[in-house]
Amino acid sequence: MIGIVILTVLALILAYVLVNVDAKLNEVDLNIKEIEELLPGYNCGACGFSGCRAMSEAILKDKQVYTKCRPLRGKAKKKMEEYLQIEEAN
């Protein structure tokens, strides 16, 4: 019982430290965060980038890259296109 308590407390302390250090050291650009929230967030890698974070950085450099995201379709895709101000190919 006491063992469970000790390990849980230790794990919580370490997690708190790591998350705060990460947040302070690696402050992300606001645009990257907004794009990342528009992406599905599966981190599947189907786009060829290493996760949704890397994909959002690539989209910032070249807007057309957003088509590579396979799970992005329907409403979510429209939202992304609105955000990136791309004309739909109708």
Binding site: L18, V21, D22, L25, N26
Partner: peptide, 8 residues
């Protein structure tokens, strides 16, 4: 932690 510091 060390990886985070190195990355920054």
């Amino acid at each position: 932690l060390m990886e985070l510091l190195l990355k920054k």
